[in-house]
Design a protein around this nucleic acid. Structure first.
Lengths: 221, 221
DNA sequence: TAAATATTTTAGATTTGTCTAAAAATATTT
DNA sequence: AAATATTTTTAGACAAATCTAAAATATTTA
């Protein structure tokens, strides 16, 4: 696997993430994501096309080639392992890890990353609940589902809330439900559709149907 | 403290190291150290002078300013903490850590480095026995002397070897002389200049003049 | 479907860090 | 102290990554 510049890696990674939602990525989308100008995106797309990392015809948008996808998985692996390290070992909070990992991910020494992986105990998800590709680029596809649909007794990671009003944030704060936290559903009550949730080994507590409908979790394939 | 590019940091660090031996650093010395061309050095020196990181007059060589020295200590701190992490936590051997730390040192997030320091238990020397500057840039000045010059019966800490060939490493491995180990010289033999060494309370053993000349120890303060 | 609007690309400039070749300054020899 | 050798700097070029402004293409709307 060749080496790519920090800038090339950032473009590849951004395309990787944007592709998840939409099959083909546009110039403006990417410029917006990377806080750069559309003209710069076009320049880089030409370069990455020559390097066979993506499929691209002028005005038609672009998507990663098989090779580009492999490169992206390598970057994502490094990013998520560092995030795990930062949260687990250095005690950064889940909302701080991303920014720091943005820099660390570009140190692309395979032995470093494989040894880090081993040191961390081969974690399968990062602090946001996103799966970490293994040394061979294998990645668990984790479904993002609503808390109301999580099977009983399956540990899942809170990965987002659909409604971001201050009211819901206040409630989540109070219940200590943060992004990245691991929880499982212990029981569902038919009467009001409230659900009983447990975080780690703490005592279970109940949350309303309304709240549950706004919480998304990721859980193993 | 401002941020500097990877390239600027590499120049600053190289000047820092070259200054130890010689008070003022020359263009050719620096070009040689960084495997670059003298013209590139001159270009960068002009830039670093404008940024007030060094004292420099054309044809007169250069040395770091107070500010440049502070910047250098920051880089050295990051480098040595990562070296310690790589050796202690990821089980790299002490001769592998330098190269990897060369990349990691340029991630200059103060909180990251301070938390890493804490995680590692505030180590005072790196795997080569070189002192690690603390969060305020304070660095222990420890005398590093050759084993041949260590006074008899004074306990010292092995801090480095000048020659890093696999032959010397094999021998050190066999004699169980590792970086960080405490030893003392019990006797010197005039005939072949071999010396008798003791590690802790184990039986003393003899090492050759050739080996002793390549072992550096930290002793007293 | 033609005009208006939005998106994308091109052309040309800029910054950073590097290089080669030639000129200038300094050091060393004879 | 003049000639020679070495070191350092300058001048000008180049590649990577970015930008602005203008041109080309695509999409929307009336």
């Amino acid at each position: 696997m060749l080496n790519y510049s920090t800038s090339e890696e950032n473009y590849i990674k951004a395309i990787f993430h944007l592709q998840r939602q939409d099959n083909t990525v546009t110039t403006n989308e990417l410029a917006n994501e990377l806080k750069t100008k559309p003209a710069s995106v076009t320049d880089m797309m030409k370069k990455l096309k020559i390097k066979k990392l993506l499929h691209y015809e002028p005005y038609q948008g672009f998507r990663l080639s098989i090779e580009g996808y492999k490169v992206a998985l390598g970057i994502v692996r490094r990013h998520r392992l560092w995030e795990y390290f930062l949260a687990e070992k250095l005690k950064f909070t889940w909302d701080e890890v991303h920014e720091v990992a943005e820099d660390l991910e570009h140190v692309s020494n395979k032995k470093l990353i494989d040894k880090l992986d081993e040191f961390l105990g081969f974690p399968r998800v990062d602090p946001h609940g996103d799966p970490i590709p293994d040394a061979h680029g294998k990645i668990e596809i984790s479904k993002k589902i609503c808390l109301t649909d999580l099977p009983l007794n399956k540990v899942a990671v809170v990965s987002g809330v659909s409604n971001q009003s201050s009211e819901i944030l206040e409630l989540l704060e109070h219940k200590k439900i943060n992004i990245g936290i691991k929880l499982e559903v212990k029981k569902r009550f038919e009467f009001d559709h409230s659900i009983e949730v447990r975080i780690g080994r703490q005592p279970a507590f109940t949350i309303s149907k309304e709240l549950a409908e706004n919480i998304f979790v990721k859980y193993g394939s």
